[in-house]
Amino acid sequence: MEVNFRKIDIDQYDEDALLYNELYDTDPRDPAQALDDTKQNAAAVRGSLARNDYVGALTLVLENAPYGPNVEEAKNLNLQTLVTILNSTKGTDIPGIVKALSADAQDTLMKYLYKGMALPGWGDVSGSVLLGWHEKLTEVAGTGCIVRAMTDRKLV
């Protein structure tokens, strides 16, 4: 069967095509501001980790996480900070930490887990660590959390 027609970008013939950026509100901060915030968070996270406050550290990274286009630098830094936290957590502590997070933070964490899995070998990303977190997070937040990570256009 002829299927090449499926690859034609029909939106180019549509003056009124729905654009990707119309589907969500973009990050209100400008890129420099977002990067600044993320750097401050990264420093605060080091402090939290020194006190073994994993929930506090994760909350810092997951709340106000940079998203959308134009803030790539901030997004990468935030992912790096998050991976540091995930890698330094003991497996037995994960369920308790995940339960202590807010529902919004759980959803954002799921987005980062999928982002990490899409970047094998990037920085300190470890597939087995991410899968361990994914399993525990799904047990607490359910498949609905995965659905929200896939649906949300505010990509971290």
Binding site: A103, G142, G144, C145, V147, R148, T151
Partner: peptide
Amino acid sequence: SHDSTINIVYPGGPAIYTIKLAILP
């Protein structure tokens, strides 16, 4: 909506209650 939530809108409020579900949409 397809993010596994149900939202209840009180236009006079203005308040939106969002219930995030742990299940499929």
